[in-house]
Amino acid sequence: MENKDREILRLLKTDGEKAMEIIYSDYYNYLCHATYKILNDSVTTEDIVQDVLMEIWKKREILDITISLKAYMRRASINKALNHLRGKRMQFEDDDKYTETFVDSDDSHQKLEFNEFSDMINGSIESLPEKCRMVFSMSRFESMTYQEIASALDISIKTVENQISKALKILRKDLSDYKMKGNSIKIS
């Protein structure tokens, strides 16, 4: 565990408010970004992160964290986000039917015009269809397996495969369009 985490955990027990001030200033944005990548909903994201931090506050006297505090809070936020999604019981079946035509016809995906490569990648991910982006993000940013994504969203592995495949096809197409315009992709 980092020294900073140790200090925050010590402060939580001795000067809780100071500890929370540090947590908010140093970790709030990080937690929101991680959660937003899954939810794509700023209001729910901030509510969830607030809930997580409020729980830290309430349990500050008895909190016993052995992993990094940052990792603990990120895991708690993502878990809450996944619970939220599971509660929404989204229907993926209709999406599955149109996976192929959707990408091939390319009439539903927003056309992107970007000068910077990083903007192109960001825009391309953000304009993925909601469920497709969500499944892709779970794999890309939370390293969740097909099985884990299927369980988290209460959908079949086949549906996860369809969504991953769709996401990659769309992203590849955007990348290819970007390159065709003679743009460089050396930006890391």
């Binding site: 908010y24 709030y28 944005n29 970004h33 901030e46 990083s118 990648i121 890309r140 992203l171």
Partner: peptide, 18 residues
């Protein structure tokens, strides 16, 4: 390349949240 993705349309306000 997607590893570097950072949400562009969402800017959380840590001060307001605190």
């Amino acid at each position: 390349k997607t590893a570097a993705y950072e949400p562009t349309s969402f800017e959380p306000n840590a001060t307001a949240a605190y």
